[in-house]
């Protein structure tokens, strides 16, 4: 140590070098930390209908609507394929409902498939939120179809193809990140209001102990035609 001190006394350049190296490392770490920060939210999810259900027309105006009292037998048109060119992603879409054990959205367990909420609006819906959720990743299978969902930008296109070969193209208008405890799911699963496509996955900090992400990432897209 005494030798070293002696050397540094003679040449302050070596101390400067240490200082410079320290600054370089600190800066690199800082840049890495900044880069890893999640992208900021943008846009507003498409307008939903007012929380109060619109009152049906007063009975005095026009004829009273008549239904024919037979059981309904129509199924909404199920999307079967989702394509997002900006992410070079094409994924098969399964019609899914609710996990009976948890009451949660039953996201397909296979990470390369995504799930369409079959109780809500389908591909050619005229109103409401068409919801598709997919894994960001899984412990068993690695990166999921929606691994890069959070990097979509306004204007990116999303194409939905349905059973009958019908397809509909949507354009990203908003991206939001919420804590799972605070996400306004009623709004994202609304069946009224302007028609929109809602893509949901997980994101944010990961809790190694509970094996859960803290947040949900939600991308909203509106139809281009």
């Amino acid at each position: 140590m005494s030798g070293l001190r002696g050397t540094s006394r003679r040449s302050p350049g070596r101390a400067l070098l240490l200082l410079l190296l320290g600054a370089l490392l600190t800066t690199s770490a800082g840049v890495a930390a900044c880069r890893s920060k999640p992208a900021a939210d943008f846009g507003a999810p498409a307008a939903t209908a007012s929380p109060v259900a619109p009152a049906p027309a007063p009975s005095t105006a026009g004829p009273v609507p008549i239904q024919h009292g037979r059981p309904a037998a129509t199924a909404p048109d199920s999307p079967t394929r989702l394509a997002i060119p900006a992410l070079k992603l094409t994924a098969a879409v399964d019609a899914v409902g609710i996990d009976e054990q948890t009451g949660d959205f039953a996201v397909p367990p296979s990470v390369d498939r995504v799930g369409w909420y079959k109780f809500g609006p389908g591909t050619s819906a005229a109103a409401g939120s068409i919801v598709i959720a997919g894994h960001v990743d899984s412990a068993e299978e690695g990166e999921g179809a929606f691994f890069r969902l959070g990097s979509l930008e306004a204007g990116d296109q999303v194409e939905l193809t349905s059973t009958g070969g019908i397809s509909r193209t949507f354009q990203v208008v908003a991206r939001q990140r919420y804590r799972k405890t605070a996400i306004p799911l009623q709004k994202y699963f609304a069946r009224d209001g302007d028609v929109r496509l809602t893509l949901i996955t997980c994101g944010g900090p990961f809790d190694q102990r509970t094996r859960h992400y803290r947040d949900n990432v939600v991308v909203t897209a509106t139809p281009m035609s």
């Binding site: 949660d104 990743d137 412990a139 999921g144 691994f147 994101g203």
Partner: peptide
């Protein structure tokens, strides 16, 4: 009603927090 939640990841790979090594470097 809406589902209770949308659990869609348990791998942890998408956690964009800086890797622990970067803390060491810093």
């Amino acid at each position: 009603s809406a589902p209770g939640g949308v659990p869609s990841g348990n791998g942890g790979q998408a956690d964009r927090g800086p890797a622990p090594a970067w803390y060491g470097v810093g």
